[in-house]
């Protein structure tokens, strides 16, 4: 039986018996991490954009200024609360709180996506705000000087640069989420960590199962960071550019070619 096997034999045994469970768990972990990071980024961008709307005491009406001030205060509270408390507690708080206080029965899946998304959103909001502020103010002035509105300047000039600035942080959040979804086992989400707990509970093979799970987590995070690095490089584009022959400029345009 399993008690007579050595370390490697146990790992093989566990994988034969529970391999698909681990893979399913890993799949669940990835799906929650990817979807929630995506939604979290959208939340983060919306919050960051609202927080950087300029207010002009002279030109903006009083109701508009008050409305913005109230919204900004609420957003601050959101960011502070969700950055300042552990996600494991937030998960329990939302899963049970929604049903007891608001009488909304959230499934554990909905809770899982909700918790990880708004948690990521809180972190991303700060990153986005920082990313927007760190774009040279001259970019906004250049955009305004050719007649763009604040919204046009944000969409065409500022946000693309802010996005590039914070892409490493988005990647960071994704990797953190891949690891941190493990806390969702408190609301019975069958993710990779939940599978580990079940398997080691049934076979008493804590070390072997943990080894397997470590390897799977590490594989997922390594691949993720590699892909993100590729994406960053792609966004930066070619280091070189091709000089275009003035004579046949029309036909040459739009084609992307690298030199050197």
């Amino acid at each position: 039986m399993i008690s007579n096997m050595n370390f490697l034999e146990r790992i093989v045994y566990i994988l034969q018996k529970y391999g698909t469970s681990y893979l399913k768990g890993a799949g669940t972990t990835l799906v929650i991490a990817l979807v929630s990071t995506f939604i979290g980024c959208i939340i983060g961008f919306l919050v960051g954009i609202v927080q950087t709307i300029p207010v002009d005491k002279k030109k903006d009406s009083l109701p508009k200024r008050i409305f913005l001030a109230v919204v900004n205060a609420l957003l601050r509270i959101y960011v502070e609360v969700f950055r300042g408390t552990p996600m494991i507690v937030q998960a329990v708080f939302i899963y049970y709180g929604m049903s007891q206080v608001f009488n909304i029965q959230l499934g554990m899946w909905q809770s899982a996506f909700l918790v990880v998304s708004i948690n990521t959103g809180a972190y991303m909001a700060e990153s986005v705000r920082g990313g927007i502020i760190s774009v040279d103010p001259g970019q906004m002035e250049g955009a305004k000087a050719i007649g763009m509105t604040h919204v046009q300047a944000m969409i065409n000039v500022i946000l693309p640069q802010a996005f590039r600035n914070i892409l490493p942080q988005i990647g960071n959040n994704l990797i953190i989420n891949i690891k941190d979804t493990s806390v969702l086992s408190v609301i019975s989400i069958v993710d990779l960590f939940f599978v580990h707990k079940s398997v080691s509970g049934a076979l008493y093979t804590y070390f072997e199962s943990a080894t397997i799970v470590m390897v799977i987590y590490l594989t997922m995070t390594l691949i993720t960071s590699r892909l993100l690095r590729l994406w960053e490089n792609r966004m930066d584009g070619d280091e070189n550019y091709e000089l275009v022959d003035v004579m046949d400029i029309g036909s040459q345009l739009g084609k992307k070619r690298a030199r050197g």
Partner: peptide, 9 residues
Amino acid sequence: FQNFNLFNN
């Protein structure tokens, strides 16, 4: 502008 302010993206 003195510092050009071309759109870097």
